[in-house]
Design a protein around this nucleic acid. Structure first.
Lengths: 158, 158
DNA sequence: CTGCAATAGTTGCTGTCGCAACCACTGTAC
DNA sequence: GTACAGTGGTTGCGACAGCAACTATTGCAG
């Protein structure tokens, strides 16, 4: 092999991660589009709403991309834009009742696919896998850690 | 919480996986574009070439998307299209010497970023993580398993 | 050999994403 | 109050990806 690094274990590991991600994404179909990601994040947030920029960070999307995505979701009635009381620059994206209903409608299938995929792991493997992913997330994406952590330490929310 | 499933551990797990993927992708920058994925796959393949459709499957891209991507890579001289001897429908994408050089040039930085990211894991964690990812890949994307496995068991089960 | 279904790849069209430029607002200095 | 740097969000523009339609080739049935 002319280039030994091509078989570097780190590349293999990353390649595996990407393959699993892509496979899972494919299996989830439209359900793992940024759109769904946005809805789920909002549903898990207090007040079912988030600032545009925070939401963008959580779904790893540019501000412009998110703005357009929200446009579409507003058009379908799943989300509404809410002006912020104390800072008129800020806009909150808030899940409507309809959006909430849409999420709840698609969750069972969503979870079914995930369960089917993760069913090959033992409980111990799952736990270790999750712990490892948490460590990696802190390393590669420290900004979003507050997102799905156990404790929403939103102390700054006045 | 109106919808208990939102905190379903499977969703959390998948969310973590997506976050790590996105974070890693961001850190790799352009280096984890489909373009690079194509180059790396080719570099690891015999003859440095693959059929268009096989390559598309490996990088999880549609045939049309790949066709366009190859167009661009041909334009830059990294890849060439090679007609197939025994089936005139088939086209092989083959890495040129220039493309090989490009990969080798970017590999060190690529590996550096990955090493930095994975450095938070102990060797044991890495091994377990890899084993788990392999199991998951078999489950969610059985088609591509032949790709980066240790032994190219092309015997088709004989 | 003629016809026909299936396969491999490319192209037209549409939708989405990101970067850069832009506008609106805040807070601070003067 | 006015000026100004910094922040939050939205739009213009260019690039990329997927679906569906199309062409070319293969393999098989008659």
């Amino acid at each position: 092999m002319a280039c030994p690094s091509l078989d570097d274990p780190r590349i293999t590991l990353a390649g595996l991660l990407f393959e699993v991600h892509d496979g899972l994404t494919t299996r989830l179909g439209a359900k793992r589009s940024p759109t769904s990601e946005v809805l789920i994040r909002l549903a898990r947030s207090p007040e079912r709403s988030l600032r545009m920029s925070d939401l963008a960070a959580q779904v790893t999307m540019s501000a412009s991309g998110l703005s357009r995505a929200i446009d579409r979701l507003v058009a379908t009635g799943s989300i509404e834009r809410v002006a912020c009381d104390y800072d008129r620059r800020v806009v909150h994206a808030r899940l409507t009742d309809q959006g909430q209903a849409e999420i709840e409608a698609m969750l069972p299938e969503h979870v079914r696919v995930l369960e089917e995929s993760f069913s090959v792991l033992t409980p111990t493997e799952r736990d270790r896998f999750e712990a490892t992913l948490r460590k990696l997330r802190c390393q590669v994406n420290p900004e979003a850690v507050q997102a799905s952590g156990p404790a929403p330490v939103r102390a700054a929310a006045s």
